[in-house]
Design a protein around this nucleic acid. Sequence first.
DNA 1: TACCTCTGGAACGGATCGTTCCGCTCTGCT
DNA 2: AGCAGAGCGGAACGATCCGTTCCAGAGGTA
Lengths: 214, 214
Amino acid sequence: MTTVPLSGRRAQAARNDAVILDAAREVFVADPAAPIAAVAHKAGVGISALYRRYPSKEELLSKLCLDGLLIYVGIAEEANAALDAGADPAETFVTFMRRVIDADTHSLTQKLAGTFQPTDEHNEAAQHAGRLNTHLVERLHEARVVRPDMAVADLGLVFEMIAVIRFGDDERRSQLRHRYLALLLAGLLLPDAAPLPGPAPFPGEFAGRWVKKD
Amino acid sequence: MTTVPLSGRRAQAARNDAVILDAAREVFVADPAAPIAAVAHKAGVGISALYRRYPSKEELLSKLCLDGLLIYVGIAEEANAALDAGADPAETFVTFMRRVIDADTHSLTQKLAGTFQPTDEHNEAAQHAGRLNTHLVERLHEARVVRPDMAVADLGLVFEMIAVIRFGDDERRSQLRHRYLALLLAGLLLPDAAPLPGPAPFPGEFAGRWVKKD
DNA sequence: TACCTCTGGAACGGATCGTTCCGCTCTGCT
DNA sequence: AGCAGAGCGGAACGATCCGTTCCAGAGGTA
């Protein structure tokens, strides 16, 4: 357990840890069914370098998904903290949404869900995220900045709708996602709007996604 | 070439034509990469019944996609015709969007794009659809019912975002899709809205989707 | 009856992909 | 210097999946 900068072989190995995770994130976000060899190729390493770190593809996917979940939780916690500290609700909400879009956490969670057996860690993180979402939306309703019929589960659907935009290079994709986020927010930030049609999605309605399919 | 009702074997075969197409649509909309055996199973027929009608999987996908394109063209033509006949622009637009969502044509076109080699028929239909979209959006701008920066290509993105909703049974899915269509329309039908961020998508920006990947 | 269309589904062959394994390199220690 | 072993690249393996072909039989039709 040394904290001094490693050199030589060890340093390379330590760097590979990050390189591999980044490559895996990029590859699996683009195509959740991608072969593991594609990750190795993108990372510029051999397959052994992957299997040295993760005992199986499923473990790698599991870690990636958990990371995404935790990133989301972090962003949601900050938003809730800001609201509790008296920040402007509408502005905080918009910032929250933008940060989630930028972090692209939904490509790491909902798109990867079903490709691995969820662990307790996943379930706990997901439940925590749910509580944070509920708290956030309650605050927004109290502050009357969003349409009265906005439901907690609308958040997830909005993120998912935006995550479907997957064109061009990173910058263009980001531009387009923020464009449609703005469009959706224009529809959401209407405290006096007439109700949307149909029952809102209820929490857990989409939980089926987490069950591994095979 | 008889037009009288067929009976016996022939009738069964004729019925199978429709059964197979319906099953194929359902299966491939749910999963564009589904095996052809799944279509046969869903249709309640053997694999031979499929190959008797379509020389390959690709031909079947091609036909399905063309069907979707033509359905879309039909709906768009009706909307344009209604506008030309003096119908209320906003109402016509909303009806148009609802009908496209209900027909689920985007699951048949954008989701199937890339799984087959497009033919001239596809290209012509797609170009025709593009012209209809352009005409429609121009009318909406003339009538000042939509936000000034709404672009033609926004239509496709909206349909795609909504098509990502794929939960529960048919009825629930339809409810949710109309819910989010209403949300997006609330953001779209704002003639005086401030511009959305980022350059709007331009026509053809997503054309890469049609090239077959292998 | 003889033929022929249509069918179900087994079998085939190719492709894909997760995982294992082997031999090599290079480091850090003695 | 020399060695032990961590780390690695990538070929090879085995399993699975899937599009397509093929054949035997069922049932109309003439």
